[in-house]
């Protein structure tokens, strides 16, 4: 059996006066696309940031490739933030060059091809791009990293349907589902449903179910949306 790429063992996260995650245990061993699904405030973002080594768990352990996760695990993990996390003063070209120079795993060709196919103006500064194009560029940069783990926090939220379609298409075209793990969080299930291999349901900071999506359909005749209703209610 292949060792788990990502392993969470009884992970809890407390902020000053509130609990974000309680006792989460799961292992992601197989490559493919995982959906972290749950309502707003269920701890999805915290979970992803903890998996990325950008937050420390208050209790429990998180391991990536059999090593405790820290910020330096970023050599195996590309994290896509929901926020506008790009340097607004850089042009698209400069941003690509920056990533190319700073990230050893970054494929410049891949990035430039994607940007070309999306018709994004390369000489424009990030801050002058439309919101949709900023989101597109952000996804391009994440997908251009050849790393075993991709974590995307709400990659679709707040974007119009055309942008969402582009993003899903880029994910399908560029994620190597046989080699990479992609974990994406979302509260809009129906749109990503056909793209998921596995689902992780979250509610109030706990993980309720981790299951293969096709298994869900085969064994229970349930769609993810139905399973979600059952699990989260």
């Amino acid at each position: 059996m292949t060792p788990p790429l990502i392993k969470l063992n009884q992970v809890s996260k407390k902020y000053l006066n509130q609990t974000a995650l309680t006792n989460i245990t799961f292992q992601l061993t197989k490559s493919g696309i995982y959906g972290v699904i749950g309502p707003n405030g269920s701890g999805k973002t915290t979970l992803l940031k903890i998996m990325a080594g950008l937050l420390r768990s208050s209790k429990g352990t998180v391991e990536i490739m059999e090593k405790p996760v820290t910020r330096l695990s970023s050599q195996h993990i590309a994290f896509l933030s929901e926020a506008d996390s790009l340097y607004s003063f850089q042009t698209v070209n400069q941003m690509v060059d920056f990533c190319h120079n700073v990230m050893p795993d970054f494929s410049k060709d891949k990035a430039l091809n994607m940007i070309q196919s999306l018709n994004i103006e390369k000489d424009k500064k990030i801050k002058h791009l439309s919101k949709g194009n900023r989101a597109r560029v952000k996804i391009v940069l994440t997908l251009s990293r050849q790393v075993p783990v991709l974590l995307m926090d709400e990659p679709l939220s707040g974007l119009d349907p055309l942008v969402r379609e582009d993003i899903l298409r880029m994910i399908v075209m560029n994620v190597d589902v046989e080699e990479q793990i992609l974990v994406l969080s979302t509260h809009e299930v129906s749109e990503v449903e056909p793209f998921l291999d596995h689902v992780i349901f979250m509610k109030n900071g706990t993980c309720l179910l981790e299951k293969s999506v096709e298994q869900l359909r085969e064994e229970k005749g349930q769609s993810v949306v139905e399973a979600m209703r059952e699990v989260l209610s």
Partner: peptide, 17 residues
């Protein structure tokens, strides 16, 4: 696999299967 996955809008693993 990838072409069809993009065309019909599903995960490539599904097409492989």
């Amino acid at each position: 696999v990838r072409e069809l996955a993009v065309k019909v809008g599903v995960n490539p693993n599904t097409v492989s299967r």
